[in-house]
Amino acid sequence: MKSPILQIRDTSFSYDRETVLHSVSMDIQPGEFVGVIGPNGSGKSTLLKLLGGVLTTDPGKLFFREKDYKDYHRKQMARSITWIPQDHSMAFPFKVSEIVLMGRHPYLSAFTFEGDEDIEIARNAMERTQVLQFAQRGFNEISGGEKQRVVIAGAITQEPEVMILDEPTSALDIKYQIQILNILQQLNKDEQVTVVLAMHDLHLASKFCDRLVLLDQGKIFQDGRPEDVLKKENIEEVYGVKVHLIKDHDGDIMISPDTICTP
């Protein structure tokens, strides 16, 4: 049995007085591709922010390689774990290449410029996510799908062991959704990067993830293999809609509304 790369232990979290996570616990093994699913407001973003280290909680709750998050320096942490937000609004006109190079921050000391090696790493990352051709464009000028690929290139530039992505595909059309998921799958297969991502599309989730965590009102409803989690009764209870399940030719699960029975 390998030791888990990420652990969250009995963690609750609230903003002001509104509790969004209720004693959540889970272990993530190195190399896993984990999808976090659940209705809007079920706590997906909060869980990912905690795992990504951008929301902080009490000590003894979060562990990376069995060491408390609190015992890592920020830069040390950023060399291992990266978190990617859902939307990317940029207040200032940075270029695509500048955004990607910012991923080298945890490797550089104060007031230094990125060296040749950093640029090479950024260039490879941009090649990988196919954004090299607009390296010199303004980040605010490119489309949503392109932005997502640029931000992922920035995260790859960080050379992380774990990538945590908050709904990287939600705002994109099907072509870009598949493109992004393919990039992540490749990183996962080729470089054993552990991927944890929130998703809404349950069919794509079942296709790409080897494990799904279904959240319901801040609690883990079920955690397991896609075919065990995506059960008719689970979906109907958590999402509150009547559905029937269809398997595609790969055996992946598609979910369709049960129009006759919908109240």
Binding site: A78, I84, P85, E98
Partner: peptide
């Protein structure tokens, strides 16, 4: 300077980049 650049792209993104 570089930390400030990152903060201008978003506080939580900056944290995730090690700021």
């Amino acid at each position: 300077g570089r930390d400030l650049n990152l903060i201008s792209t978003g506080v939580q993104s900056a944290m995730s980049r090690g700021v």
